[in-house]
Nucleic acid binder design. Structure first.
Length: 404
RNA sequence: GCGUGGGUGGCGGAGCGGUCAAUCGCACCUGACUGUAAAUCAGGCGCCCUAGCGGCUACGGGGGUUCGAAUCCCUCCCCACGCACCA
């Protein structure tokens, strides 16, 4: 973080509030953070997808802040729990992962994690290490810590129960396992998304049940994706930190205007005051939301690809979308020379999924060759060694030329 | 095991004998406009072609009734709920 002159109190205050919706023992945690005690800060990650998206970085960035304050981050890889399936904020059951998938996902994960947190000082634990060893008697014992009524207090269990939608017993076990993780690693603090609040609280209940002191809880805001719904891999509205600079930049530009402030708050280090000003200026019309988004996009892309790449991505965006120029890098495709129908060419180059949709694209005026609109779906295109740029819509380009 | 209600396009969810390739919402695509790939508005959104009130394949699988079935019947598979059996 670039907060060099801030006092510790200010830093702690920001850690406790920025992008945070709920802190469970707020005063208690604040005191701890201001003391010199080194805390064990837990974050559970379910390696359910191979990529880390911006929504997940919110929590990771929070961890980073704790690291900077000198605390010990304990990352729990839910290799065991992922096999069970997490019911959080889902109205129906989640698919379970196989051990092979988990292992595969983790390989990619570490590389991505290191872009945000300091992995060398991080304790990485797999919860199968202790959960696998529990005997059935011990599980039964653990199950004693919760009543069915308490479980049903959880909103999404309650909703499903009321609607008559299946809740498997296995799902009831999930919060218990996550809570047991806290016991196993002796967590002082646990971080999680707001949708995880129930599970985080379960950690407290279970720690207490085992006669240990209860962890404090920091629940963070959920980040909306490009379409305004919660960012989630299964919705396909994610911005992955592995996305190429141009792609990442473009996705950020398509975020809804109302979310600009939230994105700045949750995914960048931009100072709180500056964010406030940006929001204010957008509201008053002094600042064009487009420019605020350019700023946001540059910030985020810089974090994952460096400032140079961010500048380049911005220049590319302005050139292509604001000025309508051709992008710098266009995919090139070589095909057989000769005459070919435009619709067939679109399918061949991957710009259209089927001839029917290619037909529609042309009819709707979305197809251009070297900038010139093609309006006849039957048009024959002559392909020879001279290349030309085939364009579908505003953002799909392919350079086509014939083989000799 | 018995009973009830279900299984429809990427998802949610209509339709319950015929213009149903299937209302609608979300997602997605194209266009207009703009401040950007925001918002808004318009159109599109199974596949094929000689592009047409065209052909083909589709509504869990299979079979049947009918001029005609996503819609009715039989059967199989799967899901949920309830009941029972067994402890």
């Amino acid at each position: 973080m670039r907060s060099s002159k801030k006092s510790k109190t200010d830093i702690v205050e920001e850690v406790l509030t920025r992008g945070v919706t709920e802190v469970v023992d707020r005063e208690h945690l604040k005191k701890l953070l201001l003391s010199n005690k080194k805390l064990r800060v837990k974050l559970g990650i379910d390696p359910t997808g191979p990529r880390i998206h911006l929504g997940r970085t919110v929590l990771l960035r929070k961890l980073r802040a704790f690291q900077e304050l000198g605390h010990k981050v304990v990352l729990i890889v839910g290799d065991f729990t992922a096999l069970i399936g997490d019911p959080s904020d889902k109205l129906s059951k989640r698919p379970r992962l196989t051990p092979a998938q988990v292992a595969d996902n983790m390989r990619n994960y570490k590389k991505q994690l290191s872009k945000i947190i300091d992995l060398s000082s991080t304790e990485l634990r797999y919860n199968s290490a202790w959960l696998k060893k529990l005997s059935f008697a011990q599980v039964t014992e653990l199950a004693e810590s919760f009543s069915v009524q308490q479980m049903l207090a959880r909103r999404n269990f309650k909703d499903r129960y009321d609607k008559g939608v299946d809740i498997s017993l296995r799902e009831f076990l999930y919060p218990l396992m996550q809570g047991y993780d806290s016991v196993a690693i002796k967590a002082d603090v646990e971080i999680g998304g707001f949708d995880q609040l129930f599970n985080l609280m379960a950690g407290r209940t279970i720690q207490k049940y085992y006669g240990e002191k209860e962890q404090d809880i920091l629940a963070c805001e959920m980040l909306e994706g490009t379409d305004g719904r919660k960012m989630s891999t299964s919705w396909g509205n994610v911005i992955n930190i592995t996305d190429e600079p141009n792609d990442m930049f473009g996705k950020l530009m398509s975020v809804r205007d109302e979310l600009i402030g939230k994105y700045l708050l949750l995914t960048t280090d931009v100072a709180l005051e500056k964010i406030k000003n940006i929001e204010k200026d957008i509201k008053s019309g002094k600042l064009n939301p487009r420019d605020a988004k350019l700023f946001l996009s540059r910030e985020v892309v810089s974090i994952y690809h460096g400032e140079k790449a961010a500048e380049k991505a911005e220049a590319n965006f302005i050139s292509v979308f604001q000025k309508g120029n051709l992008p710098e890098e266009i995919k090139e495709i070589k095909t057989n020379s000769g005459k070919i129908e435009i619709t067939e060419l679109l399918v061949k180059t991957g710009l259209a999924a089927s001839k029917g949709s290619a037909f529609r694209l042309v009819e709707q005026g979305g197809v251009r060759i070297d900038g010139e609109k093609i309006d006849d779906p039957k048009k024959l295109i002559n392909i020879n060694s001279n290349s030309f740029v085939l364009q579908s819509g505003k953002r799909n380009f392919v350079k086509v030329s014939g083989k000799k």
